[in-house]
Amino acid sequence: MSFPLDAINALLERLQHHPFYAGRLPEKIADARDFAARVPLMRRDDLVAEMRKPGFGAFASPQAVRMNFSPMGGGLVPILQTADDLARMNAACATQLSACGIGPGDVCAVTFGYHLFVAGLLYQSQMEAHGVACIPAGPGEAERTAQLCRDAGVTVLAGNPSFALRLLEAGMPAPRVFFAGGEPFTGNRTLYDRVRQAMPETQLVDSFSLSEVLPVARTFPGGEGVHVFDELVYAEVVDPDTAEPLADGERGELVLTHLCKQAQPLLRYRTGDLTVLRRTAPLHGRTVNLPRVVFGRTDSMIKAKGVKLYPSELRTVLLGIPGVTGGHRLEVGASEGRDRLTLVVQGELDEAARESVRRAFKSQALVALDGLETVESLPEGPAMVDRRT
């Protein structure tokens, strides 16, 4: 998609007198570069501080009809939606449900949590708005839930992949479509392959959202990764250090802007999530794609061999590798004027696992390991250590 100039300028005009944004925003911008240069970034701490003020401070919303909560900053922060917000979310999700062939006559079991948090109601609302019968099962009690799904003829399942596997083991027939969430899915090849083996004919859907920005993106039939709901959000990727916008295909921090949200509108909101963004040919109307979803957090970065490395990326590299039993540490050293990367892993890796780790590291970090060591026990400490002098 091209830059949504008209939608952004309408947003800027609408928020000129918003209690949080008044005096912070230009009245109009010319293009994406102008937007990034003149609209300040927002951090999660900014949202948390405002929501902890009496009446939710500048984000007070008398029109809100739904209030979920999300763990942030050491406590639970309210997430507000107006009736129009919910209607727009349901309409956007309806395009993806239709693309998956879901509609009246289908029965969906939602096994995400419902107590305070957002995922359960998000899926229930969109399914019901789309004419799909919905069972608000929630998590836990796999035996009973599997029986209910058998009795009701469930064709669509939404929930954590690990719990979905438990349901199938308890006798639930494989659904026609499975919406995965709550755990790394396409980014965890071992878990994804287990689900694919258990549901060989099922359409598998990955998704990415934040409690405060949802939905963000989902798998659409015929694509890879997840495609952004660009009628709801504008996505950018910036350098986590400099906050400068990055070109498509470069690894950086995902920044999101609500285009039309009434309650808690967020502009250039730093998610802290590492991803890659690219534009594609239209796929069910979507052109903004996160091919690898998200693969880490912007924490304690170290630059080596000309690239930025993040501790949370290491977990992505080792996820599902057999033989890994505990901690891991990336040691950055130097030899003959060149950076040297050694990954130390607690556990025992056979040659196939070692090769898998090396390939995964290079694919993730875009540079190769110089050394891979295994130890029986790894002392507590940071996930990355810079030993260069």
Results as ranks from 00 to 15, higher is better:
297 R>M: 06
108 C>Q: 13
140 G>Y: 01
373 E>L: 15
182 G>R: 02
22 A>Y: 03
240 P>S: 05
35 F>L: 15
96 Q>K: 04
13 E>W: 03
204 L>R: 00
312 S>L: 12
377 S>V: 12
44 R>M: 14
276 V>G: 02
83 A>Y: 04
64 A>D: 11
281 A>G: 12
347 G>N: 09
367 V>C: 13
240 P>V: 03
325 T>D: 05
367 V>A: 09
38 R>G: 05
9 N>R: 10
354 R>M: 13
336 E>T: 04
164 A>I: 01
133 A>D: 06
384 M>L: 13
244 E>L: 08
194 R>W: 01
171 G>T: 04
107 V>H: 06
110 V>M: 05
173 P>W: 06
327 G>V: 10
26 P>H: 05
129 A>K: 13
261 K>N: 05
102 I>H: 14
1 M>G: 15
35 F>W: 15
177 V>M: 06
260 C>E: 14
138 G>S: 01
302 I>M: 11
173 P>G: 10
257 T>Q: 08
44 R>F: 07
206 D>C: 06
283 L>Q: 13
301 M>W: 01
39 V>M: 11
59 F>H: 00
192 Y>F: 11
66 R>M: 13
95 T>L: 12
195 V>I: 08
307 V>P: 09
320 G>H: 03
279 R>Y: 14
182 G>S: 05
47 L>D: 02
122 L>M: 14
133 A>T: 14
136 P>F: 01
289 N>F: 07
77 V>C: 10
388 R>H: 10
252 G>H: 04
349 L>M: 05
242 T>K: 05
66 R>T: 08
132 V>A: 10
161 P>T: 02
99 A>V: 07
300 S>L: 15
346 Q>G: 12
321 I>A: 02
296 G>P: 07
22 A>E: 13
211 S>A: 15
30 A>G: 12
190 T>S: 13
265 P>Q: 11
343 L>G: 10
310 Y>F: 15
69 F>D: 00
16 Q>T: 04
197 Q>E: 13
353 A>N: 00
65 V>I: 15
195 V>W: 01
108 C>D: 00
341 L>M: 11
18 H>N: 08
7 A>M: 12
74 G>W: 07
294 V>Y: 04
98 S>Q: 11
112 F>E: 02
252 G>W: 02
201 E>P: 00
229 F>I: 04
135 I>A: 00
64 A>M: 11
35 F>V: 08
373 E>T: 08
278 R>L: 07
91 A>R: 15
138 G>Q: 04
